[in-house]
Design a binder for these strands. Structure first.
Lengths: 157, 157
DNA sequence: TATTGTTATACTCTATAACTATA
DNA sequence: TATAGTTATAGAGTATAACAATA
């Protein structure tokens, strides 16, 4: 692959996948299938906490979600009311709160990810193990390299 | 790759790229670098027309962009005012309008895509030609298979 | 009566600004 | 004075509903 059109094709392919997820409302559908009645951003908070494997401060959740603090603050009351997270004052700093996912919250995340992974398995059904492994390897490498290039944009401005 | 965690990793990798594009505001930055002062959705209309290679009806633009008609309608006056598209009545159907990209509009799209492709080239700089080709092949195959699986969701509901 | 497009309105997600409490 | 979080407000993007014009 040496010319512009192939590079454009890689970008187009990635855009297609991105569009399929966004416009096809994959997340919303997976939530519906999993019986989850939450905003998508609220679920994202749960996934962030579950992935972290430990309670997080609100600012840390915002950083990991790549959004601003007030946005996370606004999502929490509903999650708390549903018993999916609990909020405790950080014993080390009275200004901060630690947000912990509850057992119910963990189950919600597991149902959601199970649904999505099932669809992924279906999509890759006809693939050889070698091709699957290659896809995983290249996707991760590309994610790293692309993120690296994008990070450099900040300093170029 | 046989287990859940690897399937989850593929999904996570794709999500990472998607997030890098969305949260890093790649499109906005590419527009800025290219001196394009448009809404991102408006540029998307231009790209859709340019990719089609022929004038399109408003409904057809909306379908290809995977949005509803009124949304496209609202974007057109500004594009027209800037001379990037022109709107002509469809000679075959007085109800419909055909939207054509102008030469200025074409140049805008080319500047934009040139910038993005440049970043792609940078990101893939250290890659061997074989790996680049493999990435392109697998991305396109995955885009097809994943889109196919998602399309089936509609009939499963 | 069905289709193409438009106008008006509303909703979701996220950002910025101003503020409070604690360090 | 700096930091963690909250409250209030605003903006971008897109959807739905009601309508007009033409087929």
């Amino acid at each position: 692959m040496n010319d512009e059109s192939d590079l454009g094709a890689v970008f187009a392919g990635i855009s297609r996948v991105g569009n399929a997820i966004r416009r096809g409302r994959i997340e919303e559908r997976a939530m519906q299938r999993s019986g989850i009645e939450l905003d998508r951003p609220a679920l994202s908070v749960l996934i962030t906490l579950q992935t972290a494997g430990q309670p997080l401060r609100i600012g840390e959740i915002a950083t990991r979600m790549q959004v601003v603090g007030p946005h996370v603050t606004r999502l929490l009351p509903d999650l708390e009311k549903r018993g999916l997270v609990k909020r405790v004052v950080d014993p080390d700093d009275q200004r901060a709160r630690l947000i912990a996912v509850t057992d119910d919250g963990t189950r919600v995340v597991q149902r959601y990810l199970g649904t999505v992974v099932g669809w992924m398995r279906d999509a890759l059904e006809g693939w050889s193990p070698e091709d699957r492994t290659m896809l995983l390897t290249l996707i991760q490498r590309f994610a790293d390299d692309f993120a690296g290039r994008i990070a450099r944009l900040d300093t170029e401005d």
